[in-house]
Amino acid sequence: MADYKPEIYFIGQIVGGSDFPTDLDGLFVEASLKYGENWKLIEKTSTIQTHTSYPDDEGFFVFAHPFDFYFICESVQGWPKLNIKVWRLDQYGKLDNIAYGIINLPNETGSFDLECPTWRPMSGWREESYNYYLGGPPKLVNSDPIVRDLNKRRFLTSMSSGSIHIHCEVLMKGYRDSFISGDQ
């Protein structure tokens, strides 16, 4: 009906992280957008990386990393998701990927406080003892089991980790005129 495509704005902030199993080390988050073929991201890069943050007494890591994603969507399929990787910078300067997570961006207009619980892969006693004595949990080679090949999840064992807090506000343009839900 409408001769233009619906547009959507995700405005918000990666607020912080909590309950991560580190007390002396710094963390940073690498968040990358995953979206379908019919979605078009305008102007901005799809991967953001926060600063390295050290916790306060309550174990809260502040990232305060603003984002402003602007999409033009031709189809609702492939609604954007944030693929989150948490990295740890330890006191010797070693970088480790310690947690993974994925979260859907909200499909409704409004303001949302999202919480993305994360996990890390776990394997046998060798890797766990390596992790215990030397630091550095087992890592995923690629992000396919997080995002794409969900059938491969059953080959994984995982250990739960902390959670990332995201504040996101959604503005939709032309969704009512295209008779798509979410902007009611």
Partner: peptide
């Protein structure tokens, strides 16, 4: 702080 680029190099502590 208003941009989300170039912040990778900084280290902060929450207060």
């Amino acid at each position: 702080l208003s941009k989300n680029e170039g912040r990778e190099v900084t280290r902060v502590i929450s207060t």
